[in-house]
Design a protein around this nucleic acid. Structure first.
Lengths: 342, 342
DNA sequence: TGTTAGCACTCTACCCTGTTGAGTGCTATT
DNA sequence: AATAGCACTCAACAGGGTAGAGTGCTAACA
């Protein structure tokens, strides 16, 4: 069956209306609200065809039609207009990013929050992280007479703190000497274990064996942490009647708590860098997500790659959400470029 | 009216039953389930008295009775037995704390999670923080040729990273010299602004003026961040039928998102250090919390004080929850003592 | 041949009703 | 003082009827 331009117009009307109201759309509603110049009876015939093609379906016999995943897919790929965000929103996003560049984790959190606020959906942001990051150097900072902080910096410029405790802590100068020796080691072996070289350092700073052992343990563990996942606006989901059933809402909450699933979902980067990707309902092949859609993209900070996703009901406002997401990424990238030197 | 021992037994039965089932408790239920040796009619008379005293109330004319805030208060203060946690739970909590001591923020997060898991209520943990903390020293670690990390350590041993960017970054030795100079400054003036001294440092390291200016800005901002608040198990609330109404659930979620309110609530430390404090329903004087109770206490890390709260419906299992909370605090304190040197 | 009006049909949502069961308070009795 | 009995109240549930939205089909029309 052919998809005539009239059928497309009707499909578009159904989707637009359903996104707005959440109620199944009937033929009469369309004939009245959308000036297609045809009667409801004709629309009924066309709708019957659209249903046969799998683009819309009926929740029950005498209800209106709602778009299927396939219908949304067609809409997203071919029909959806490009809206753009307001000047206000754009400024809001840019200010947000600018004001937080010194605390990256805080920035991520704020990003998630801001997007949730602007879209009224749930958002997920993962920390930027390189696939195979290597330790570049460390620095030791004394805290008190029993503990030091080991600051580690990776090739991709991620900074991480680890607290180390030991019975005996050297003074400032010795600490610096140990730092230098360990950095030398790292230059040669990275975070791999080289017994001989480690023994050498241990020997040179004999009184502080306990501390040095802990340093090597910490070094071998660096970068093993998976990247942080920040979620926000999860409760926004409750605003949509399709989740007013408490059990359904619980399910959604459960998925959004499983950071592993979210990570995996966002990480799949088949669409390429910087592209906005849309996963509609069952397309994720995860039963827990069959009533949710995800609009996602990625951002880069040097070699590190992070992901931003917006999660809402399948009838989410794709066009608006995409534009907000694009605006966010733009602000982020602009600021990141400035920082990392462009 | 006097509170006879029989009245107390009936009140206790009502509360115990209501905590377990969530359904209003009738006189017949009590006479059958609790061996008080009196008939339901007698119990009815006594219940009528208890109602007059404001300890229980009726949701509607022909329903059973439920405890009022005042009833819970009496129960918590005078009737509640002390249960203790199982060996298993105790080991679980201790292991948790032990395995996370090198990453404090991670430990807090895990603490919140573990308590939520054990109690099936929502939990709030605030980062330990001293009231009037002062900067003790900083350390500068180069990241790349445009940025350094400033590691700041406060009197109370809190460590924080701030990323600083500048057009020109000195090498390792100069960075160390700047660190030393700035630490000298901090020794004299803390995080206060002393123009003359700052000018001196600026002059000594003239080519790096931009960086040094940023250092002083960062110094003046240190410690201004409010302490982190971690929540967990918020969705557990959905398991209790009193919040199966979506609007009520939304309200609860909203409160638990307002970290300010939670902070204020937990911070009030009138009960004294280490004491477990219980706030029942309306006692908080916050309308948003009128259907929720909070069981809370505090922990100390050196000079820093942090708070742990467990939030559930007013009919929460006070006795069990208190014991889990006590177990958690015990594990925390034990480990903290070991660390901070005891 | 495509479009439309008309009609019978379907199904949900809603309201009204009566019934059941749990629970109460009062009163008379033990 | 304690209890048994009784009339009463109320929420929850199920059944029945109606209104309204929507459909599919058919016949008529341009």
């Amino acid at each position: 069956m052919d998809l005539s331009s009239r059928k497309i117009k009707i499909l578009e009307a159904i989707i637009t209306d359903y996104i707005k109201t959440g109620d199944p759309v009937g033929s009469r509603t369309i004939s009245k609200k959308y000036p297609l110049g045809i009667s409801s009876a004709t629309i009924r015939n066309e709708m019957s065809d659209l249903e046969e093609m799998g683009l819309i379906c009926q929740p029950h016999t005498s209800a209106g039609r709602i778009p299927s995943d396939k219908g949304y897919r067609l809409y997203v790929d071919r029909l959806m207009g490009h809206s753009s965000i307001s000047e206000e929103e754009s400024v809001f996003l840019k200010d947000l990013v600018m004001s937080n560049i010194s605390h990256i984790d805080y920035l991520m959190e704020q990003t998630a929050k801001a997007l949730a606020h602007l879209t009224n959906y749930a958002t997920v942001v993962t920390e930027a992280k390189a696939e195979n990051d290597r330790l570049k150097k460390i620095s030791l900072v004394g805290v008190d007479d029993r503990s030091v902080v080991m600051v580690s910096v990776t090739e991709s410029k991620k900074v991480e703190n680890t607290i180390l405790r030991a019975g005996k802590i050297p003074d400032f100068d010795v600490l610096n000497a140990i730092t230098a020796a360990v950095n030398n080691y790292i230059g040669l072996y990275g975070s791999e274990i080289n017994k001989e070289a480690a023994e050498n350092i241990l020997k040179s700073f004999k009184p502080y064996g306990e501390l040095i052992a802990k340093i090597f343990t910490a070094i071998s563990q660096t970068g093993s942490k998976t990247s942080e996942v920040y979620t926000s606006g999860v409760n926004n989901i409750l605003d949509y009647p399709e989740f007013s059933d408490i059990e359904k809402a619980k399910n959604v909450f459960k998925v959004l708590e499983e950071k592993d699933i979210l990570q995996k979902l966002l990480k799949d980067n088949s669409a390429g860098d910087g592209a906005v990707q849309i996963i509609i309902g069952g397309e994720s092949n995860l039963s827990q997500l069959k009533d949710l859609s995800i609009i996602k993209t990625n951002y880069t900070m040097g070699d590190n790659i992070g992901f931003i996703g917006i999660i809402g009901p399948t009838r989410m406002n794709y066009s608006q959400t995409v534009s907000v997401l694009r605006g966010m990424i733009e602000s982020l990238n602009e600021v990141i470029k400035q920082i990392t030197g462009g």
